[in-house]
């Protein structure tokens, strides 16, 4: 079953002579449990594609279907609620909220995703244990290493049981060992939960985790191929 479908999506920034087409007739489908790498040079449209997929940007034309619902047909409020429950994010920097502990960061996402507070706490504990960072639950983000922070971000992305995790350069600021550990955790936990993963990246080391690679150049899908590992 497809959790994300983009159908001939165009996205234009600016108007008139300054208009830039960030996405041109992009069509892409990602199924549950898939780990898809979105590769391409800087400025190719990877992040724009992730934002359109999450409903953070509306396509200028074309259609986006996320977890069974058409985003362009939704109001902004509906889109926000749908995103909170069905999408998980991992950003290039962990973007954990610095005034909250690791545990609170994850609980907050679970609650935003619709869980009751107690269930959110239980699921947070389970998720942090699965990622091997349960002992860090009461630490603040600035007390963590880069790799620990990204694993906490992975916990936040998956705690509410999303249909898809959208990750933007999740290993971009990590060394090889940490990056590999984060990618491995993200891939295995998402697969366990049947969540799809769409990763925008330059990091070729992630190819070994991908079930498919999609290359985007100048806002167009240049080619798509199953990863050979």
């Amino acid at each position: 079953m497809m959790v994300l479908e983009l159908d001939r999506v165009r996205r234009t920034r600016g108007v008139g002579p300054h208009a830039v087409e960030a996405l041109r007739d992009v069509s892409l489908a990602v199924g549950g449990g898939e780990f898809v790498l979105l590769e391409g040079p800087s400025g190719a449209g990877k992040t724009t594609l992730l934002a359109v997929a999450a409903g953070l940007l509306r396509p200028t034309s074309g259609d986006v279907c996320l977890a069974g619902r058409r985003l362009p047909a939704m109001s902004l409020g509906e889109c926000r609620r749908h995103r909170a429950t069905r999408v998980g994010f991992v950003f290039q920097r962990s973007n954990l909220l610095p005034r909250l502990t690791v545990g609170e960061n994850v609980v907050l996402m679970a609650v935003l995703g619709g869980m009751a507070r107690e269930a959110a706490k239980r699921e947070t504990t389970r998720m942090l244990e699965a990622l091997g960072i349960a002992t860090l639950a009461d630490r603040y983000p600035h007390e963590l290493s880069g790799g620990e922070e990204q694993r906490a971000a992975v916990a936040r992305a998956l705690v509410h049981g999303p249909a898809i995790v959208l990750a933007d350069e999740p290993t971009g600021s990590l060394d090889g060992v940490s990056g590999r550990a984060v990618a491995e955790s993200l891939g295995s936990l998402a697969a366990e939960r049947g969540a799809a993963v769409l990763v925008a990246t330059h990091d070729v080391r992630l190819r070994s985790f991908a079930s498919r690679r999609v290359r985007i150049v100048d806002g167009r899908i240049a080619d798509s191929e199953p990863d050979l590992g």
Binding site: A54, L56, A84, T85, V87, F91, L97, L112
Partner: peptide, 8 residues
């Protein structure tokens, strides 16, 4: 981040 995650 909060807005992206879906906070009201």
């Amino acid at each position: 981040v909060l807005l992206a995650l879906g906070a009201d």
